[in-house]
Computed example of a mutant assay.
Amino acid sequence: MSAKAISEQTGKEFLYKYICTAAAVQNRFRYASVTAETDWDRLTQEHSWLLTERLVVKPDQLIKRRGKLGLVGIDLDLQGVREWLNGRLMRETTVGKAKGVLKNFLIEPFVPHTQEEEFYVCIYATREGDYVLFHHEGGVEVGDVDAKAQRLMVAVDEKLSEEQVREQLLTNVPDDKKEILASFIVGLFNLYEDLYFTYLEINPLVVTEDGVYVLDMAAKIDATADYICKAKWGDVEFPPPFGREAYPEEAYIA
């Protein structure tokens, strides 16, 4: 197995295309990618919602804890997004121990919600099987989820059921949200298996009266499964870690 990180945009595209769940997944395919070369007139023609909705903007370069680092612009109009980007686009930035240039950004609709509507879910692979982690509190202040989260291990060749999810993961969730969360988590796990993810984290996952919103996502896939998943993956780009450009050898291998 070769676990390689994918961009948030790629991960969400996979989810929106292929997840099968009774939960109403909102904001499907409502994102726009921005670089220094973006033609804004064309962008707004292709994504007319940019002109009418409040927006969120963030770098899409495998950077963790973007919210805590002040790298997320929230509840902005399009002009506010452009002003926010002007202060960051193509500027060298230090994140942790890495220094690199911010050059790829993602714009999405802003989703008004309360803290009580934020949840955390993560699925990751181990030798014994796949662990599903869930915490009834999500967002930038989630803290140490390894210590806090409810945990369920799905052994190799076993399936995850909604009953297991409700009984073992959703004990601290209000009753009116258990059904929709159980359906979404089972659908997410099946997607994770079908598309050969090795890591899939959503934080926060927002559940409102309208349905489920996937706000932030981090994901890795098993690159050696390309021959199995090519029809669904398409041509996947594996971005280098923040702080360096792709090596020529990586391009040759790809």
Rank of each mutant, 00 (worst) to 15 (best):
K177F: 09
G80Q: 00
M217N: 03
N190F: 11
T198M: 07
S33N: 13
R166D: 08
E245F: 08
K68F: 04
K148H: 08
V101E: 12
L133M: 14
E250K: 09
Q168L: 11
D194L: 13
Y18E: 10
P204R: 13
K177S: 11
L181R: 01
E245W: 02
D146A: 13
A225P: 01
E167H: 12
L200I: 04
D41E: 14
T224V: 06
P59C: 11
K4M: 13
N86M: 14
I228P: 00
P204T: 12
E116N: 11
K230Q: 11
R88H: 13
A98I: 00
V132S: 03
Y192H: 01
V207Y: 07
G100Q: 01
V212K: 01
V207P: 02
F242N: 04
F110A: 06
F189V: 04
D210L: 05
Q115K: 12
L106I: 12
H135P: 05
I202N: 00
S7Q: 04
E37C: 08
G67A: 06
V207W: 06
A22N: 15
Y120A: 03
T35Q: 04
T94P: 06
E163S: 14
G129K: 08
Y199C: 01
V142A: 05
S161A: 05
A182I: 00
K103L: 03
N104Q: 05
Y199N: 02
W84H: 07
L200A: 08
V165I: 10
G73S: 04
T44M: 12
V186T: 08
I63Y: 01
F189N: 06
A155V: 07
S2E: 15
E46S: 10
N172M: 12
P112W: 10
H136P: 02
K220P: 02
